[in-house]
């Protein structure tokens, strides 16, 4: 599921790029040709951007507003107030219980992903504050095996939900995932039920859950925790859906409509409450959450 969707996503990215107005259209030449670290090419408009500027802008292109993917930890750092943050569930680490092996051993895939990302698995959870309001926020690390959900993601998510329950504070989750992780087989599928059950408890306790879907949110993650928000939010132009576009194309044997499974498409079809620019997430979600939790309005400094 996960890697399949990842490749599909790449395929659609270039398709999307073709649709977007480009000033410098240099199809085929990847950012490899640009000196690593200093400069980068916007995946949306193709403009050459100063890496530092893009970073300061939370990986959103200052020219065309294209939202590049952002790592889980940087996401949470940018979203939560500075200081007073505490990680939840970081002691939970993956194991290869099935001794799964395809072209590579799962064990090796794990250590490779851990080395590449500095994360133990694909979900990071933080307890912190959003403009002074205590919250629990979780974020998927897409670079860790396509943000795929298996045991550790499920367990950390449940711990996040439990922390929200205990502290009676809102839960937020930023999804970026290809779906369930094949290497943990049916155990991964069961994480869909596990995380959804944890959200049922929050719902009964009257604690809000905000799901922020980012590019991409597919398969088993989309069909469980991500779609269960009291408020369902997406970043602009994120790919969101159950089946991957290539699988659908093979099934229906026709070209998919323009913008299919993008945030704007989902909003139009009633699956989302709103689309929010990454740079406005803090302000707007704290506003909504302060209303849902019946707190006084936050006066911005």
């Amino acid at each position: 599921m996960n890697e399949n969707d990842t490749t599909e996503i790449r395929g659609t990215m270039s398709w999307l790029q073709k649709l977007l107005p480009t000033k410098i259209n240099t199809e085929g030449s990847k950012k490899r040709s640009i000196p690593e670290g200093l400069w980068t090419k916007c995946e949306g408009c193709g403009q050459i951007l100063y890496r530092g500027e893009l970073e300061r802008n939370q990986e959103v292109c200052p020219k065309c507003d294209h939202h590049h993917r952002i790592g889980a930890r940087r996401r949470l750092e940018a979203f939560l107030d500075a200081g007073n943050r505490q990680e939840i569930g970081d002691e939970i680490e993956p194991v290869d219980a099935l001794k799964f092996r395809d072209s590579k051993k799962y064990k090796d895939r794990l250590s490779q992903a851990q080395k590449a990302t500095g994360e133990k698995d694909a979900l990071v959870v933080m307890q912190g504050q959003l403009l002074g309001m205590p919250v629990i926020a979780a974020a998927f690390e897409f670079r860790f095996m396509g943000g795929s959900m298996a045991s550790v993601v499920g367990e950390r998510f449940v711990r996040a939900a439990n922390a929200a329950l205990q502290n009676k504070c809102p839960l937020l989750c930023f999804s970026a995932s290809g779906g369930a992780r094949m290497q943990e087989a049916l155990v991964s599928l069961m994480q869909m039920a596990k995380t959804s059950a944890a959200l049922a408890r929050l719902r009964e306790a009257g604690i809000p859950f905000v799901s922020v879907m980012t590019d991409p949110t597919m398969g088993g993650v989309s069909a469980s925790l991500a779609m269960l928000g009291d408020i369902n939010v997406a970043e602009p132009k994120a790919l969101i859906g159950f089946a991957g576009p290539r699988v659908i194309e093979q099934t229906v044997r026709e070209t998919l409509p323009e913008g299919f499974q993008r945030s704007e498409f989902l909003l139009e079809h009633g699956a989302l409450d709103m689309i929010i620019d990454r740079r406005e997430l803090r302000q707007r979600l704290s506003g909504v959450l302060s209303i849902l939790t019946r707190r006084p309005a936050i006066t911005s400094p």
């Binding site: 959200l199 269960l228 659908i248």
Partner: peptide
């Protein structure tokens, strides 16, 4: 599996599955 089709996506295949998981758990 759940049907991978255009209409199914338009009408919220993910949400339909997710909701069943949550409701069945309680």
């Amino acid at each position: 599996g759940a049907y991978p089709g255009v209409g199914a996506e338009e009408r919220g295949q993910s949400e339909a599955i997710a909701l069943n998981l949550r409701v069945m758990s309680t």
